[in-house]
Structure formats: C-alpha cells, structure tokens
C-alpha cells in the first residue's frame, strides 16, 4: 500500500486512490464551521478535490469517527471549492442537523478530522451558448447554485436566481445570490422574507421576463417537480439535482434509485449517486413519488409482476 501523502495542514489523501477515476477518499480536516441561518457552513481541507469537482457534484462524509455505530455516509452537494489556499485545497458544504449523523458533523470544530469521498455524481450540464439561465434553490438546496452561477456567467450566461424556503431562517445564501446573479427573487411559505408562497408562484414571471431556455434546480422533490412543470410550460428544460437517501454515495448499495426515462424513453430504476444527482426534469417519473415513498412504474424495465418481487 502506498503511504499517504502528507499535506501542509496534516490532511492526507490515500495516494492509492489518486484521481483513479476522478474521485478521491480523503482524510480531510475542518478549518472553519459557522452558522448560516438554520444551517451550518463547513470548510474542509480536502487536497485534490477542488481540481476535480464541478458544480452539481456532491461529497459523501463518514460520520461519528472510526468506531461509530452510524456506518452510512451522509451526502451533501458541494457548495464551492477552492483549489489553493493557505491550507491547501478546500471544499465547502452546507449541512442541516436533522439526525445523529448530521448533528455530529455540525458539532465538529476547527482542526477535527473528517473522512471525505468526493467529488461524486454527474455535474450540471452547461449550455454551449451564452443563454439566460434561471437557478432555483429550495432551502439549503441552493448551496451549489452560487458556484454554478459563477461558472455560467464566465460563459456569458445572464443568471437569474430564485430562492425559496419555509421561512427566512431556512433560506440559504440570499446575500451571496445578490452578488452571484443578475437578479434574485425570494419566496417563503410564511412570508417572513420576499414573496409569500412557493418558487413555482414566481417562476412563470421569471421565465417570461428572461426567456431562459434552461432552469437549474436543487431542493426537495416536490419543488423539483414543479420547476420541471413550469419550465416545460415555457418551452425550457429543467436540470434538477435530486436529494435521495443514500447509504454509500459511490454506486454500490443500490438504495438511492429512482425511476428515470433514458434517451429512448425506457424507464429504469437508476442510481441517483452515479447516474445523477442531476437529471433532466422531464425524464424523471415524478408520478411515482408519493409522500416520501417512490414506487416502481409498471412499465419500468424488470418491474415486479403481480405478487411483487
């Protein structure tokens, strides 16, 4: 086994895994953690990841330390990366403390170790022409959109952002959005910030005003479905980054599947970690999702016959 390569910060990379196929397992080191509304913003030294990562990809973090009883990795979309800094390349993630694993992550302090596998999954596909783009984030689903906005604007694409959440404290990055985008619209369910209502209430006006042929979205499934619908009503394509429960994040556990049509229109249960997390919204079989449960459409390849599997 090749010995790990030390870095200036003490974080190590398994050289064995070095960019074998664009993904690394890294012994990372937290260098900053701060609150952002209802969320925590984590900056991790993770050498090598920044050079490989693109907007829309995600990181899978082990939680609880090496002897923990919480074995499953927690996956987060990458908020941003920085290839070189005082401590070496860094990775930024936004985390909501929902259960014991994410709680553990939000209790990390500067210089604590954290095991990172990244970058994972398919990135947002970028337009070849400098067309206007709408970026829609639900809650902390907005995390990857600021970096995406930067990349799009570098390519000459005007960027309009729509950020929605239940309440003001559950919005993420409103200030950052004003810097990253040409226009920002905010919605909250309770009206505590911006328009009262959902992102789908304001989206039609944004499509009409910008004439955007593409919308990028990240957030809860219901929001992604409505962004897909509104985009289609305006002749636009939605590229959505899904949030599915994953055990491994690397494509081996088969738990994060969802029904998606391929180019030929054939529905398969595909892994959102390797074939996603970004999908064309109009290829996702949204009708299979009901209240946190997703069924297998009867016309999916290998769907259960009568009596089930």
């Amino acid at each position: 086994m090749t010995p790990p390569t030390p870095t200036t910060s003490g974080a190590t990379v398994s050289a064995q895994t070095s960019a074998r196929d664009g993904v690394l397992r890294v012994d990372g080191e937290v260098i900053a953690i701060r609150r952002a509304g209802a969320y925590h913003h984590l900056t991790i030294v993770a050498p090598g990841v920044a050079e490989l990562a693109r907007p829309g990809q995600f990181a899978a973090l082990a939680v609880g330390g090496p002897t923990t009883g919480n074995l499953l990795r927690r996956s987060f979309s990458i908020h941003k990366v920085s290839p070189s800094g005082t401590y070496g390349g860094t990775l930024d993630l936004v985390i909501a403390a929902k259960g014991p694993g994410t709680q553990w992550l939000t209790e990390l302090r500067a210089h604590d170790a954290v095991d990172v596998v990244a970058p994972l999954g398919r990135a947002f596909p970028l337009p070849t022409e400098p067309v206007p783009c709408i970026l829609v984030g639900g809650g902390y689903g907005s995390a990857p959109l600021f970096w995406l906005a930067e990349v799009l604007r570098e390519r000459g694409c005007p960027v309009e952002m729509v950020l929605g959440a239940g309440s003001e404290d559950r919005l993420f990055g409103v200030v950052e959005a004003r810097r990253a985008a040409d226009g920002v619209t905010v919605t909250t369910d309770d009206g505590s910030a911006g328009h009262r209502g959902w992102v789908s209430d304001v989206l039609p006006e944004v499509f009409r005003r910008t004439g955007a042929p593409v919308a990028y979205a990240c957030g809860p499934m219901g929001m992604l479905q409505s962004v897909t619908r509104v985009a289609a009503e305006h002749g636009a394509v939605a590229q959505v980054a899904v949030e599915e429960a994953m055990a491994c994040g690397v494509g081996v556990c088969m738990t994060c599947v969802m029904p998606v049509r391929d180019k030929a229109g054939v529905t398969k249960m595909v892994r959102s970690c390797v074939e996603g997390p970004v999908f064309r919204g109009d290829r996702v079989r949204w009708e299979a999702f009901h209240d946190g449960v997703c069924g297998v459409p009867a016309d999916a390849v290998g769907a259960p016959q009568a009596g089930g599997h």
Binding site: G69, N70, L71, L72, G101, E244, A245, A247, C253, M254, T255, C256, V257, M258, K268, M269, A288, G292, V293, C294, G295, V296, A300, V301, G302, A303, P304, G308, H309
Partner: peptide, 29 residues
Amino acid sequence: MEPRSGRGTPRMAETASGMLNSIGLQGPG
C-alpha cells in the same frame, strides 16, 4: 435470469451499528 427493477424506495434504514435494506434483487439479468 431476467432484468429486475428491484423495489421502490425508501430501500434503506440506518440501524444501530448496521442497516436494513430492501433492494429486491435489482439486476440486469
């Protein structure tokens, strides 16, 4: 023998020092 979609989701639950899975033998045949 044949391609198999496996089951719907959720297919996984974390448990104390382990996990529960219900994949349903998804595979290509």
